[in-house]
Amino acid sequence: MLCREAIPMKSTIPEKNAIIQRDGETYVIAPRTPGGIVDPATLRKIADVAEKYGAATLKMTSEQKMAIVGLKEEDIDAAWSDLGMDAGIVTGPFVKGVKFCPGTTFCRKGQQDAVSLGMKLEARYRGMKLPYMMKMAVSGCPSSCSEPVIKDVGVMGTAKGYILMVGGAAGLKPRLADVVAKGLSEEEILAAVDRIVEFFKDYGENRKRLGTIIDEIGLEEFKKEVGLWEK
């Protein structure tokens, strides 16, 4: 009996920001759309590219990016070229895209400007390489539509300023974030997150989320390490 040469399985292509799909043949790409805020022209361009290259569907992801699903490998480069947009990093030990709600920019319930803070955090950290992934979210009010309580760094707006939470996670071992500071301004949040990210760079380990590290060293020790306090 003749042995047939095995056909190599396709896989995710990090350098092209393309993730292999369940069929093992096609890919998804997700151009960067911070906070999911886009104008009609950008949406039309994404739709046109999806249609041109025969994509299976479009999907807004949990990171508020518009994913083009079901592209052939040979069309990935051309699709990115036609989009002319920044690629959304899809895999690896990075700060993921910051998730944020409309805040006071659009929402009648907003108590703080989640869009301004979310955009600043996105520009500051997104794609930064770390020992393991880190997720961030900002909500403009206690409704917490962006789910900050299950993010490594979560920020929730209130009438008295921002509440800062750390160590949240979903997944197989869910963990609610710990409140470490209240009544903060946007500037104070940015300074505190800087210190948290630097801490994670120094203490982080492969496949270990921030919440796990906090559980190992204790919340009070973590707050001391990064200079956090509750007002």
Rank of each mutant, 00 (worst) to 15 (best):
K160E: 15
G88A: 06
F222T: 03
S62Q: 14
A114P: 03
T33H: 06
I13N: 02
K151H: 15
D215E: 14
A79P: 09
D194Y: 12
L190S: 06
G54D: 07
N17L: 08
V49P: 02
G24S: 03
M9H: 12
I13M: 05
V28H: 10
T212C: 09
L184K: 05
E73Q: 08
Y203M: 13
Y203K: 15
I76Y: 01
V95M: 07
M156R: 04
A169P: 10
K65E: 13
M128I: 06
G70V: 04
E205V: 09
L130Q: 05
G24H: 08
V38E: 07
E122P: 07
V226W: 02
D152C: 08
V138H: 07
M119T: 07
I46Q: 08
I20T: 08
M156Q: 12
A137R: 05
E15K: 04
G127A: 01
R175P: 04
Y53F: 14
L228E: 00
M66Y: 15
R209A: 04
R32N: 12
R175S: 09
E186A: 11
G168P: 09
N17F: 11
T12Q: 06
M128H: 15
L190P: 11
E187S: 11
E15W: 05
V38T: 12
P131T: 03
Y125I: 03
E73K: 03
L117I: 03
R32T: 12
E25H: 10
P131N: 02
P31M: 03
M136T: 06
S146P: 06
K208E: 13
M165F: 14
I29V: 05
M1N: 15
D194K: 02
G103V: 10
T91A: 11
G36R: 01
